[in-house]
Amino acid sequence: MSEERKWAGKTHGTPWMHKALIGMFKVLPLELMYLIMALVIPFYMIFYRPGYTSIYHYLRRRQGWGSVRSFFGCYANHFLFGTALLDRFASYAGRRFRTDMHNFNLFTDLTAQPEGFLMYTTHIGNPEITGYMLRSDGKRMNVITFPGEKSSIRTWRENMLGPNNIRLISADDDMSWLFTLNAALADGEIVNIHADRSFGSPKTLEVSLLGAPAHLPLGPFSLAAMRNLPVLASFSLKAGIRKYNIFIYRLDTPEMAVMSREDRQQALANAYAQLLEDVLHKHPLQWYNFYEFWN
């Protein structure tokens, strides 16, 4: 995998800055924080060029927008991404968001079954919000996290998600996490994994996404095909200052269950790409992969 496609999985800033931000959320209104961020974004666009150019290319080439619309779209995209980050810290400070859940029965149906299942998330919207809402007392949810996350952020996330029967598993280089993941699935638990970025293995599956070839990580799809597991996909999309819409979809079909493993993993990846495409057509500005996703 090329350097530009790698992502360290870190939240920017120092632990002191994160603590200060959480402290501010306890006293300042969310709207004021958004306003301050809106003023900072132009500088971020200027000084973090890879983020700006990758989103500009995505809007121009994949969404087919004109140059002026794409430029302002970049600003709107960065602003929405900033609100997603601020909402995370607001959550750590105890703030809550209104959420409308769509197809929640797909989640409850699977949690009632003895077998484990996979949930795919992606860097669209604010997947962490899903974790605060999808509580399942009967089945623990194991969220695979990027290994580079700072310990302070990790502690806050654990404090927030732990009461919801969610365990964070860091995908460290020593492969320990694979045994934990394997045991979780064997015990009939839920594994939540990002299905748009690689970690642990550089292998990918090629799919067609918004009219061009793109590469999704093989791992999540191989895992589902290997154990013939049910798969859900979830998206938490910003719908207002304090509101998110959470959408859940079932990805596997009865036809996939009788396919060969190779065909099933490719069929799952194709179905996921189709779903991403549908979501991105409706919510083009909530795409937060700040690197050249299509190569």
């Binding site: 492969m175 320990s176 996490w177 045994f179 934990t180 394997n182 292998k203 791992g219 895992l223």
Partner: peptide
């Protein structure tokens, strides 16, 4: 790599009845 490791775990389970859960 990691995907191969998961394959090996499945191989151990299916063929030898061994479930590896301790990292």
């Amino acid at each position: 790599d990691s995907i191969d490791a998961l394959e090996l775990m499945l191989l151990m389970e299916k063929n030898y009845g061994i479930r590896l859960s301790s990292p």
